[in-house]
Amino acid sequence: MSPQGETKIPAKRQLVTKPSRTADKVFFGLTSVAANFSIVLILLILGFLLYQAWPAFQSQGFSFFSGETWDSSATPQIFQIGPMLWGSVLVALLGMVIALPLAISLAYFIEFMAAKKIAAVATTLVDLLAAIPSIVIGLWGFAVFGPVAQHWASLLHDYLGWIPYVFYHEGANYGGSPFIAGLVVSVMIVPIITSVTREIFSQMDRDVVNASIALGAGRAATFRKVILPTASGGIVGGALLGLGRALGETIAIFFVLNLVFHINFFQVINGEGGTVASMIVSKFGEADASERSALMASGIVLFVLTLLISALSSYIVKKAQPWRTN
């Protein structure tokens, strides 16, 4: 009715869904109580751990993070988690480096190569394996896979031992090394990375992929030029998700990694290591009050580390899959 030129626009009212009936108010109230509970829970976790950890942070100072001694019988007691912190990072990185190509291959196989039936079976299997508790993987890693992996480690030493430092090893016992822990952790996170990657592959435009193959670009070129660039963000996000899980992994590593308070930078088949999480479990039982405080401090460091990783991963996944946000 009004001509286009008219410019007087009344003030905009922002409309929102508001509960009006009493029952609706209760309903909305209960759900927001539940939602706010998650905020309270995270704050409680951070708050209480920090409160308990504070004495340790105070008495140990910055060397809590960097030092290499853990001695509860010394006076004053010394609690330093340098080797564990680095060990967590090393094992998680090793696990991820091993898991990533395996997971991408498997996801590619399921989505683009396997017949429908095989793909369905493999998908179910991968999802089921993602649900295997870590104590089961731990026992398997310790009793079944450990000897095999130790043999692989000895082969690495025999054939690649000429490379300085990395494949250093002494003695006949190849157990308890970051290499084995990394392998065991990779078995835990392969299913996680695979399902994220597979989901991203499955959401790709099939027509584009098929057209590229049909046009004679070939599988490999299509993978390199079409699939990987499109999916890379999501894959990185999935890998970080796996990294976060690997950092927090406790029981499986507890059984396969020697706990030594000496920083092992990169001697992957040397039986020296330890991670923050596995250290907490192994020391907690006999800890006195101040050692417990130090373990709480280790826990909070670990939590903050995984928080950072998970924030980074959700940021990257969100960027890679904008359709998932709303």
Partner: peptide
Amino acid sequence: TGGKARGVIRTLIQAMSGLPSVVSGLFIYS
């Protein structure tokens, strides 16, 4: 319910799903 804090809550749930299980034990212990 179109709650206002949707983004925050989703982020926190995401963060909680990365909570190392041993830390959850430490929390209840403390």
